[in-house]
């Protein structure tokens, strides 16, 4: 089968997708990262807005962190042709990035040196929240590292866990997929983790500063 690069589908791609902030930091005058490392285990798709009857595109039990800035391929697989209204991404909730230049006045964020780990699924003071897998099982969301499911669906919301920590991680909520995705031939499906302008110093007490990252803008195209 032919694999058609997404760049050839510029107009087509433009039709798809959307944003969702995913964490609670509050950084001003943030800088861009020079890498964004993510670990993706599995991707599923459903033709239904409620994400029912999903089809697995690929699964990798032991993936490595890869730099999203270098257009990595997480995996590949076949999918029945049709119109898809829900995408499910199983990933590590820790995203690792690095500011490309110094940021702030306290020396916490050193360009090309400081490593920032962003926990995109954290309770933020709401105990008992969880991520729900497509099979219905629950994964507790903690302040630590866990493997969660992220959802994009046509019935999702533009907002994200800033307002409701588990919003992006259960199929009944999910982030907004602005338009259904029609699969009528071989193609790329790209998940975007955009930390541009999001890296910078942060503090909890006004005295101790650390390098952090605001919620990435995440989308599917």
């Amino acid at each position: 089968m032919n694999t058609i690069k997404i760049s050839r589908f510029g107009a087509w791609v433009g039709a798809v997708l959307l944003t969702a902030p995913v964490a609670m930091a509050n950084i001003t005058n943030g800088v861009n990262p020079n890498y964004v490392k993510v670990k993706v285990y599995e991707v599923q798709a459903s033709q239904n807005d409620n994400c029912s009857n999903p089809v697995r595109i690929f699964s990798n039990a032991n993936p490595a962190y890869v730099d999203a800035a270098h257009s990595p391929t997480f995996g590949a697989g076949s999918l029945p042709q049709g119109t898809y209204r829900c995408f499910m991404l199983k990933m590590d909730d820790h995203i690792i990035s690095q500011p490309s230049v110094d940021q702030g006045q306290h020396g916490a964020c050193v360009g090309n040196q400081t490593v920032v780990t962003q926990d995109i699924a954290a309770p933020h003071g709401s105990p008992g929240i969880y991520s729900q897998a497509p099979d219905g099982s629950h994964i507790p969301i903690t302040d630590g590292e866990e493997i969660v499911w992220l959802y994009w669906r046509t019935g999702g919301s533009i907002g994200g866990p800033n307002q409701d920590p588990d919003m992006s991680f259960v199929p009944t909520k999910g982030m907004l997929l602005a338009a259904p995705v029609t699969v009528s031939g071989d193609r790329d499906l790209t998940f975007v983790f955009n930390f541009d302008g999001k890296e910078g110093e942060d503090t909890n007490d006004g005295t101790h500063y650390y390098c952090s990252a605001d919620a990435p803008v995440m989308s599917v195209r």
């Binding site: 694999t3 993706v40 800035a69 790209t190 983790f193």
Partner: peptide, 14 residues
């Protein structure tokens, strides 16, 4: 025509 398509699932930072 085939009723299946092959998808390459990729990542991007912008």
């Amino acid at each position: 025509a085939s009723s299946q398509s092959v998808l390459q699932v990729k990542g991007a930072a912008r």
